[in-house]
Amino acid sequence: MTLIDTARSTPEVLRYTAFSDDPEGGNPAGVVLDAAGLDDAAQLAIAAGLGYSETAFLTAPPEGLGEPGRAFTIRYFSPLAEVPFCGHATVATAVALAERTGPGDLVFATLAGPVPVTVTEDGPALRATLTSVEPHLTGVSPADVTEALAALDWPAADLDPALPPRIAYAGARHLVLAAATRERLARLDYDFDRLATLMRRLDLTTLQLVWRESESVFHVRAPFPVGGVIEDPATGAAAAAFGAYARTLGLVTAPTTLTLHQGHDLGRPGRLTVELRAGDPRSHVGGTATAITG
């Protein structure tokens, strides 16, 4: 029996939470292991009906991508639109597959490029670590930073001058803004439409709002109005991009592992790790995932 079954007209939609082993924590994602026969409109409708920040849809892989049964094409839809790459839905999907076929190596063909994932046993849980596409960093104009801060209702004085604004990419684009205090990060009440307008103009998937607790520990939040979601509880794509940000700006030196805490202010705590390896510019983002039942 294959995981892609073209005879099934109504696909099963699984629900997993990523970056937590508690169904009440992390970031929920929809997972459709058999999306054969679903067109774009059908996938978007499923994602909108589920209401999670993203739902992942699997179909057969491009020829030569990887070992049969371990390689897939994956697409990600938010309630409003398709996104090129989603880390938490990738982790959720990899764990869902591993529960059915066993831990090991997988590879997903995404719109951003091939994304390998390794699933291992982590005590009673399964842990998935994805390898991002090659990342890069670009600048952002002062006017666009000013507009982002206005939409967030953040005074410029509340930014951390040691962590300058940048747009970071590791499969999707994210504007990184660093808060000077944990209290500033905790107070998030933004203008949804104004921020969405700016993000669409800059082709951003989320904002990556960060506060640095220590050299390698960060607290993060991710507004996601372009996806129709106020805030993403745990964002693997932004974590991968932030790894590139930290490395490129010299905040850390590889090899090292960053720990990102996200979702605490939403009551859905999650933990993401970002491994930066010497000689490898890509980010390796890891976390557990678990099924949501009931």
Rank of each mutant, 00 (worst) to 15 (best):
L3M: 15
T6H: 13
P11S: 00
L14V: 10
E24A: 15
E24W: 10
A29C: 12
L33I: 12
A36R: 10
L38P: 09
L38W: 11
D39G: 11
S53H: 02
E54G: 10
E54I: 04
L58V: 14
P61H: 08
L65G: 12
P68N: 03
F72S: 09
F77K: 10
P79I: 04
P79N: 05
P84S: 14
F85A: 12
C86R: 06
T93R: 05
V95W: 04
V95Q: 11
L97Q: 07
A98V: 00
E99I: 07
T101E: 13
V107M: 02
V107R: 09
F108I: 08
A109V: 05
P114R: 09
D122R: 12
P124H: 12
A125Y: 12
L126T: 09
T129Y: 08
L130P: 01
T131F: 02
S132P: 11
H136I: 07
G139W: 03
G139M: 00
A143Q: 14
D144L: 00
T146K: 14
A151L: 04
L159K: 13
D160A: 15
P164L: 00
P165K: 10
R166D: 06
A168F: 05
Y169P: 04
A178P: 00
A180G: 12
R182A: 15
L185G: 00
L185T: 09
R187C: 03
R187T: 11
L188S: 06
D189W: 08
D193E: 15
A196F: 02
L198F: 10
L209M: 09
W211C: 03
E213C: 05
E215K: 13
H219D: 07
V226T: 15
V226Y: 03
G228R: 11
V229R: 00
T235S: 01
A239E: 00
A241I: 06
A246F: 04
R247Y: 03
G250W: 11
T253K: 13
P255E: 13
H264E: 15
G267Q: 07
R268V: 03
R271G: 04
T273S: 14
L276N: 00
R277K: 14
G287P: 09
G287M: 05
A291F: 02
A291M: 02
